[in-house]
Nucleic acid binder design. Structure first.
Length: 522
RNA sequence: GGCGCUGUAGCCAAGUGGCUAAGGCAGCGGAUUGCAAAUCCGCCAUCCUCGGUUCGACUCCGAGCAGCGCCUCCA
């Protein structure tokens, strides 16, 4: 099945065809670095990281750019409030963003985001673009500002399905505003004293909000992007304006496919806090609304705080269990349930290691679809099941990156592998059944290869690593289990059960298996 | 007011113009176990409401209801 993607611009799924065959240029609107990242900021990166993984697996060479907007009104205000400089605040928050990406399993570099260009380092490119727009008659200077003239762009509004006359009704037309059309937006803003400022043909100033994405995507990818991504909230005005200025400037199609991800929504309190059109203009109210959208009425939790409650892998799985275009209901309960649901995978990986002596996480996997590791044809029924799950997984991904469907298939694959282990009695026959073990390894490898496309089950959880160490706690556990084993040999069930029950109260799960005893912290 | 999205089992969540409507969590029954745990097997929905199109719709169209997003430099 060929890859199909939903294009916001045409509002339908289209066959995926890149500008240059075999290559993909992908641009994702990154953050304005003025405050610590919250969970919502991770949605786009996780999704497009997965998109890149899948495209790479499908044989494309992908270049993925995520910009950093490090000059902006919010940044200026925030720096002023907290008595720091724009540069210092931006640097700090950029680092926070990168830290969070790393924690979520998103690399900076070849295996992840190829480049993270900064707005402030592309002022000349922006000035050049603005000048070209003026020269072509699409933009006009006005008292040190430069505005894009939306009436000159016949297609303006196509992406977000808006018409100019409707925009007038919704926009605030201020008396002092001398723009030609209320929807005209700033390409360049004259800077006020104390604000970051760069020289320009129109006087000292700073870039408008949208121009940096147009300039940086042009420089780092080219005139036509294959994929332009971002949150649904950016569709208007940000993406609409990017589209207008870029196409007016280059007279080329700006992006082949516009992919917009759904937004993170808070729990039940969201409607109360974030909904409605409150007319209280004060900042606190505004911030409460913003918080409500992603973290309920209790305020926006930073991702860092969330990482203290849940393993990043659980959060990543949680984000990918829903289709990227759908909104995701955020709540601790929902994430906790995801955590519970993926427990079974960790059990399987432990079981696999126990009966084969191999570490699941060290299994080598194919990097491309074409080079996938071969499967035996031994137990026909089992192998054909594995193959069909693989096909269904890839079909789901080919259908507009349907990670939710793919996740479901992964669960089915897990189940059938567990079934194989049970049927072959691998827990008890142990290492003697080498044929079955080899079959098991190829099936598990297949599972790992697919999971890798979602960016999960790549490294062992820190907690698991800690549980496996030989520290004092480990020694103590060995001692306790030794005593319990003695009680069991003498059929002293009350004693052995008491030990197990008391350990359970301490969140230690003891499991008696045919070939021995295992324990883990739950 | 304008534009748009969503409504599938107790909860989360895929999907399809007609075949048994994925999967997970929770629950129930069974196998296994000294008892458990883990694992396996089985059970558990007719798809918001009302109309229409159709041989046939949960899937297409219309209306309604409910929830939500954007229109306000939030990813």
């Amino acid at each position: 099945m060929p890859l199909r993607v939903y294009n916001t611009l045409t509002r339908q799924k289209e066959d995926f065809q890149t500008v240059i065959p075999g290559k993909v240029g992908m641009y994702l609107c990154g953050p304005t670095v003025y405050k610590p990242a919250h969970i919502g900021h991770m949605v786009g990166p996780v999704i497009f990281d997965t998109v890149k993984r899948y495209l790479t697996y499908s044989g494309y060479e992908v270049k993925w750019i995520v910009n950093i907007t490090d000059v902006d009104d919010k940044l200026i205000n925030r720096a002023r409030e907290s008595g720091t400089t724009v540069e210092a605040l931006a640097k700090q928050m950029t680092q926070d963003y990168f830290d969070n990406l790393a924690t979520m399993g998103i690399a900076i570099g070849r295996d992840g985001i190829d480049q993270t260009p900064y707005a402030t380092q592309h002022i000349p490119e922006m000035l050049d673009m603005i000048q070209r727009l003026i020269d072509k008659g699409y933009a006009y200077p006005l008292d040190g500002d430069v505005y894009f003239d939306v009436t000159k762009d016949a297609d303006y509004g196509a992406l977000s399905n808006r018409r100019l006359d409707e925009l007038i009704a919704g926009s605030r037309v201020e008396a002092s505003d001398r723009k030609r059309h209320p929807a005209d937006f700033a390409l360049w803003k004259a800077s006020k004293p104390g604000e970051p400022s760069w020289d320009s043909p129109w006087g000292p100033g700073r870039p408008g909000w949208h121009i940096e994405c147009s300039a940086m995507s042009l420089k780092h990818i080219g005139e036509t992007l294959d994929i332009h991504g971002g949150g649904l909230d950016l569709m208007f005005p940000h993406h609409e304006n990017e589209l207008a200025q870029s196409e007016s400037c280059t007279e080329k199609k700006f992006a082949r496919y516009w992919l917009h991800n759904g937004l993170m929504q808070a729990g039940s309190a969201a409607g109360k806090v974030g909904g409605g059109h409150d007319r209280h203009g004060d900042l606190a109210e505004k911030e409460a609304q913003e918080a409500g959208k992603i973290a309920g009425s209790k305020g926006a939790a930073s991702v860092k705080e969330l990482f203290e409650k849940f393993p990043p892998e659980t959060i990543r799985f949680f984000l990918l269990a829903t289709h990227y275009r759908s909104p995701i209901q955020f709540s601790d309960e929902n994430i906790a349930e995801t955590g519970k649901s993926i427990e079974g995978f960790y059990r399987l990986f432990e079981t696999y290691s126990r009966i084969t002596g191999h570490d699941f996480y060290s299994l080598p996997i194919a990097k491309t679809r074409a080079g996938t590791s071969p499967l035996p044809d031994q137990p026909a029924e089992f192998i054909s099941a594995v193959k069909s799950f693989r096909d269904r997984f890839l079909d789901a991904m080919d259908d507009d990156f349907n990670t939710g469907g793919a996740v479901g298939v992964l669960f089915e694959l897990r189940k059938v592998v567990n079934g194989f282990i049970a049927d072959q009695k691998l827990e008890s026959t142990g290492k003697s059944n080498t044929t079955a073990l080899a079959t098991l390894t190829s099936a598990v490898t297949q599972l790992k290869e697919l999971a890798n496309l979602l960016g999960v089950f790549i490294k062992p959880l820190p907690k698991q690593a800690a549980g496996a160490d030989d520290g004092f706690a480990g020694e103590l556990m060995n001692l306790i289990l030794e005593l319990r084993a003695e009680a069991r040999t003498t059929k002293n069930w009350p004693m052995s059960d008491k030990i197990r029950d008391r350990l359970k109260e301490l969140k230690v799960i003891v499991e008696d298996r045919p070939d021995g005893v295992t324990w883990r912290q739950g």
